[in-house]
């Protein structure tokens, strides 16, 4: 999905989106029709409601396809990379959470996202350390929510 800016491009991503939704509706409906069950105490069973939903989504996606509009232009180049870096950094923090501990993971996350939002390296790192300390204190001592200590603060 890399359609360009401008009304025509936006219309294109609407149409691509509508087709993706339509395909999803069909796949979902197909899966629904193959749900395995031996007995159900009601006349409809577990298949019919999902199949109704598949039908509704298919119908709505066709309407959407015929009347596109309203999509925003996609971010390009650097901005796109930065947008995707946010879930990337969250993923990194999640994966580091158990091995390295909460404090390290949060420092990395806050520093990285801080850079994306325009902080200088110095401020971003300071922010990372400060937020790691703050959130650790809030969760561990004030709210008593369990957080992994990991290699650095592990007991």
């Amino acid at each position: 999905m890399t359609s360009s800016t401008g009304p025509r491009g936006a219309g294109r991503s609407d149409r691509v989106g509508a087709i993706v939704l339509l395909v999803f509706a069909l796949l979902y409906g197909f899966e629904a029709s193959r749900i395995a069950y031996s007995f159900s105490s009601d006349p409809l069973g577990p298949r019919v409601f999902p199949m109704m939903l598949a039908g509704a989504l298919a119908l709505l996606s066709v309407i959407y396809l015929l009347r596109p509009g309203g999509a925003e232009p996609w971010p390009q180049g650097r901005l796109l990379a930065q947008s995707l870096a946010i879930p990337g950094l969250v993923l990194a923090a999640a994966l580091l959470l158990e091995p390295l501990g909460f404090a390290v993971a949060v420092t990395i996350l806050v520093t990285g996202v801080g850079r994306l939002f325009g902080a200088s390296w110095r401020l971003a790192i300071l922010g990372g350390l400060a937020q790691a300390a703050l959130w650790f204190a809030v969760f561990r001592y004030l709210l008593e929510v369990y957080l992994p200590g990991g290699a650095v603060f592990g007991m």
Partner: peptide, 28 residues
């Protein structure tokens, strides 16, 4: 500034999901 706010939101998100499910898979 957003460079303070947005990372804060993300930290709360991770903690929220991780602490209710105690699984990294839930975060993914």
């Amino acid at each position: 500034p957003n460079w303070v706010l947005v990372p804060g939101i993300l930290v709360l998100s991770i903690v929220g999901v991780y602490s209710t499910h105690a699984s990294v898979l839930a975060v993914v």
